[in-house]
C-alpha cells in the first residue's frame, strides 16, 4: 500500500473520470488508498468497484454510492443518499452520518455500516449482506429480506420485515410494528454472539444482549387460501 492517499477533487474531476480510473485498477494494484473530496451529493460515486482498495469520501454523497461494491472498503464521512451500496457483493461500506432510503438494497454479501440513522426500506430485498445501523431505521425495512443480518441499535419503523424470507433482524429499541409474516423469535446465545460479532466488526459499541430477534414465520411460503388475509 502506498503511504499517502491518492486525492481526487470532485470539484475538479467528474464522477465518470473517477469511476473509470477506479475500474481500471488491476486486482494487485498498489494504488490502494484514495481520498475523494467535494462529492457535493454526486450520484454513483465509487460505484462498481471490483478490487480491494480503500476509498475515503469527505462529504455527502447522492444516490447509489458504492453501488454493487465488490471487495473495496468505502467510507463516506458524511451522509448518503438513496441506495447506498445497493446490491453490494462483498467488501465494507460505511457512512459516518445518516443514509437515505433503500440502503444496502438487495445486497448479496459484505458489510454495510450506517453510524447514524437509516431511512425507509433499509435492507430491502437483502440477500446475504450484513447491515449494522447505529441509530434507527425507517418503515418497511428488510421488506422481502432473503438472507443476511440487519442489526439496529435504535428503533425500527412500521412494517419491519414485511414478507420476510430468511434474513434475520435484531433491534435494540422499539419496533413500531411488524410486517406480514414477520414475528419475534427467541434471542439465543448464538444470536447474541452473532450480534456481538457484527457490532465489533462495525466498530459500534452496544450491548448485544439488549437486542430482540425478529424473523420469518414462514407462513407465506406457499400460496394458500388460509393466508389470503395476509396478502
Amino acid at each position: 500500500m502506498t503511504d499517502s492517499a491518492i486525492a481526487i477533487d470532485l470539484a475538479q474531476t467528474s464522477v465518470r473520470a473517477l469511476n473509470e480510473r477506479l475500474h481500471r485498477l488491476p486486482a494487485d494494484t498498489n494504488e490502494r488508498l484514495w481520498r475523494i473530496g467535494n462529492p457535493q451529493g454526486a450520484h454513483a460515486v465509487a460505484a462498481g468497484l471490483t478490487v480491494p482498495i480503500q476509498i475515503e469520501i469527505d462529504g455527502h454523497v447522492g444516490y447509489y454510492c458504492a453501488g454493487m461494491n465488490e471487495q473495496a472498503t468505502v467510507t463516506v464521512h458524511g451522509h448518503a443518499g438513496t441506495g447506498l451500496a445497493e446490491n453490494i457483493m462483498s467488501g465494507v461500506v460505511r457512512v459516518t452520518g445518516n443514509a437515505s432510503q433503500s440502503a444496502a438494497a438487495s445486497g448479496r454479501g459484505g458489510l454495510v455500516v450506517i453510524e447514524g440513522d437509516a431511512s425507509a426500506r433499509c435492507g430491502i430485498s437483502m440477500k446475504g449482506v450484513d447491515i449494522v445501523v447505529g441509530g434507527s431505521i425507517g418503515h418497511m425495512s428488510c421488506f422481502m429480506g432473503q438472507a443476511g443480518s440487519l442489526v439496529v441499535c435504535g428503533d425500527a419503523g412500521a412494517d419491519l420485515g414485511d414478507s420476510l424470507y430468511e434474513a434475520e433482524i435484531f433491534v435494540a429499541g422499539a419496533v413500531t410494528s411488524l410486517g406480514a409474516d414477520c414475528i419475534e423469535k427467541p434471542m439465543t446465545q448464538a444470536d447474541v454472539a452473532r450480534v456481538a460479532d457484527l457490532l465489533a466488526r462495525a466498530g459500534i459499541a452496544a450491548d448485544a444482549a439488549r437486542f430482540r430477534h425478529y424473523g420469518s414465520a414462514r407462513q407465506l411460503y406457499h400460496f394458500h387460501v388460509d393466508h389470503a388475509a395476509a396478502y
Partner: peptide
C-alpha cells in the same frame, strides 16, 4: 414471489439516476 417495484428507485426521476449508475458500473 417477485416484487412488483424496484427496491431502490420509485419514479422517473430516480430511474434517471439508476440508469446513470448502471452506465457508470459498466463504463
Amino acid at each position: 414471489r417477485s416484487a412488483c417495484r424496484h427496491p431502490d428507485w420509485t419514479g422517473p426521476d430516480d430511474l434517471e439516476i439508476k440508469i446513470r449508475e448502471l452506465r457508470e458500473i459498466t463504463d
